[in-house]
Amino acid sequence: MPLYRTEGICLRSYELKEADRIVVLLTRDQGKVRAVAKGVRRPGSRLAGSLLPFTHSRLLLHRGRELDKVVQCEAVFGFRALREELERMAAASYLAELADGFLGEKDPNAGLFPSFLASLHLLAGHPDLRHALVLVQGLLLASLGYRPELDICVHCGADLEEGREAVVYHPGEGGVLCGRCGSERKGRGTMTISRGAWQTLRRLWATDPGRLTMLRPGKAVRGEMETLLRATMIHRLERRPKTLDFLDLVLRESE
């Protein structure tokens, strides 16, 4: 069938020709889809408002050879806070860039859509945006299957010793290192996190996504978690996200 219905979230869009756009959508059942939205840059377009970035919409799409085409679109939830508050908009742009960068086209991932939707709700409504940013990065890594190994040494498989004050993490190897492996690799792409940050990260990935806001790390631990999550994102993405500079700028200025 050339026509199909789905739900989607617009991650970003590019201008096309005089009045069209290519929209990059994260859909519930088709994965990432690129589709042409005809005439959306004209003032009277019926599609424009429902295809704004971060908008959750119900869509009717026409399957094309290279690009699909948006036939109908109806907004389910607009996430206005993500467009009207600068810090939240920057955070949502960062999350959208990560999702866009990690996903191949039309590669369905059943868990990603609800997790991404929950993340947008967190970014739009959480009273502490920095806290929300840590949670949504954790959610994204988990739903992509990139959750770091935190229980055993990723190099030798040994259990992490109890009672250690600090834990060595290696973004490139995808997890923590035991004392011996950590000492051998010190300074070669490793980072050290406190026991508190390590324990909170383990709780982050063991907690039901609906109860994530119960996790309330202190400022110092949250800072360590943020550094670790970012390093993991950059390693997985194989580049620094373009949105990070702007996100850091507005977060710094809002303090």
């Binding site: 009277g44 019926r46 599609l47 424009a48 408002g49 109806e74 907004a75």
Partner: peptide, 10 residues
């Protein structure tokens, strides 16, 4: 424009 055709955000 026509109200009937306007999207929810607009």
């Amino acid at each position: 424009g026509d109200l009937d055709y306007a999207d929810e955000v607009t």
